[in-house]
Design a binder for these strands. Structure first.
Lengths: 205, 205, 205, 205
DNA sequence: TATGAATGAGTCTTCATTCAT
DNA sequence: CATGAATGAAGACTCATTCAT
């Protein structure tokens, strides 16, 4: 029995509709009536399942966390760090980028609303941010132990990596017109900058 | 007679109140009545000056853009890139960090709302994002010409730099408890990662 | 199943309340809150059904037009014209006068607001004014063909007739104190003036 | 010293502006701010002169009554009745019709608002309606005495006459497209209907 | 006397939430 | 369980009126 089966079909419809509407309009900008319409259910049905509007947000988060459990590309990211070769990761990211970009508005909304809803912030921290950081930190730590990476603050290195990637994706979406270079090439360069930045320079040790 | 004097005292009061309330509650979450109260004016007065709630946002943006004209630390950032020495910049950022962090919620709100209000997005792009990118790109370009920086995509390098700094500041605010290292040290390491990442390695050419 | 049943009971309550309040205070002078109170529903309910305040006006108009479909006294008016005998019409008008006078403020408001709301004007013209004029013009035309009425402009004759009646009703309401003559007598004289005014005088042909 | 001189130039400007704005938007639909702008004075100035918005309406009425004192065409109307010849009146009305039509929206507004403001109603009744009715009644009375007009209710005859003319002017404005006949001809026919309607028929006495 | 910025009560309208069916 | 009509508190916005300059 998998987790998803605990969520009824109606709930799924509502969650999906809410993801769409929240992504487009933001949490405050969305209306329960529009979500209901998008989900093809009555407005009252939403409240039967989630109690309040905030409850829907919570529901999305839980659902997201569940499916975020093992973000394949994060695992790969860790591998990249350990192998020092970005090739496979880039390939993977590239393949998943469309999905990521689709989720971007939702993630932005979630991070933004986290400011105003403590519980949202806590869930994001515990279930998303921390695991990712931990995963990366672990890999980075290994490299540091093996003296392949310089002796910098582990957390900082992880933040730097994530920020770069996040920044690239956001920027790509905000200013899509100026795609001077190919996406694969861009990701390669980005990873390369970071790797070169943290690697121990053999001639400087 | 300075530019600021074009903005009446009442308008300033409202702008400041709005910055505070918008920062705390977000644009949609804020109410004009609360802004009025915070500003110590009647609610009607707000609409006398800004017409609509969105008009207040616009007013904030204009005011922000005006005072953002020459962000000292950005100029320094350019210098750093050209000198390859982060020392002075880090010192400056460190000193301005309190101010930046105070503005952070506002900036986050502005960037977030840009999604929903085209004009906000345009102003931010034209007046804030583009100038910064251009400034950095210019400095980076010089270094590339002098073969001090590797031949990577200029925009990408700039995005990578900005993202790292932004990511650090945001992370610091979200997870303030785990300050394992000193702020100055953190910034130094961050800049160092980026610089090492983009510099031409003499032994690798 | 009659047409009226398409309008829910709540809508009917609101329409009736709105008719009353609009009649007393005019469209702009009326408040949705007062209409809600008069209708015994929550203010939000009004907007659930009519969307905007103007929507209520539209609703009234539609409802009025529906019930105005076959104004019995207009049919009689046509008969009078054709028979040249006002007796039956006067009797009918007299009986319906109370109803007409009750509707008078609403009609006045509707005609007045037509100036400011194009759609109201169009509906009134198409559904009320034109049908009445057409009906009368037709009857008048027949009489002209039979050489019972003089060869004057048909529309003008109709306007003259309607205006006299309308003027009498309005005047009666404005200056009710000076009822020197009986209502039936008044209407008889009014119709008589018009009939004599338009009839072919046998001795003058 | 004429009456008009009691009204300052500023007051006149405001009155004229108010007439324009009230005519276009109605009393409730007009704003004091728009009137001030139209008059080229500050909003406060209006209240210095007229106290309240209703005060402006009152001011208009007083001004209108003053200039309405001797409505030339009414005097002519009386003459027409006495002479039984509409020629000169029609000529005059025709000439004044443009002015009348310009005033029509104001008059409609005044009559409409009279419903809601007792004092407005009283002034209109005392200063406009009654004098006109009296003038006409007097002329009609004379004709009745001379057995030229039938022995109908004098007031009713007057109302019938006024209503026809008013109805024609209003109709002309509402449905301007269908001018089948010339204006002069229309007025002639209208007066003719009424005159024939009230005259004693020599062969029927 | 004229001004116009400030006021705040009042308006229309929205929308999360409830509950009888 | 699902529905959707009804709710009413709260929000953005308007505008006649006041008053210090």
């Amino acid at each position: 029995m998998d987790i998803a089966s605990e969520t009824s079909s109606t709930q799924k419809k509502i969650i999906n509709a809410a993801i769409k509407v929240f992504s487009e309009k933001g949490f405050e900008g969305a209306t329960t009536s529009e979500i209901a319409q998008e989900a093809g259910v009555a407005e009252g049905t939403i409240f039967r399942h989630f109690g309040t509007k905030k409850g829907i947000l919570h529901g999305i988060l839980v659902s997201a966390v569940t499916s975020f459990q093992k973000p394949q590309f994060m695992v790969s990211l860790a591998e990249v760090i350990e192998k020092g070769d970005a090739h496979s990761l880039i390939h993977m990211i590239k393949e998943q980028l469309e999905a990521i970009e689709k989720q971007l508005p939702l993630l932005k909304m979630l991070f933004y609303e986290a400011q105003f809803h403590t519980e949202v912030q806590e869930i994001i921290m515990e279930k998303i941010a921390r695991p990712i950081l931990d995963l990366l930190s672990q890999s980075i730590g290994k490299q540091k132990d093996m003296q392949k990476f310089r002796c910098l603050d582990t957390n900082l290195m992880a933040v730097s990596l994530i920020s770069s990637l996040w920044g690239y994706v956001v920027w790509k979406q905000i200013a899509p017109e100026q795609e001077t270079i190919d996406e694969e090439e861009a990701l390669t360069q980005l990873m390369d900058i970071w790797l070169k930045g943290v690697e121990v320079n053999p001639y400087n040790s």
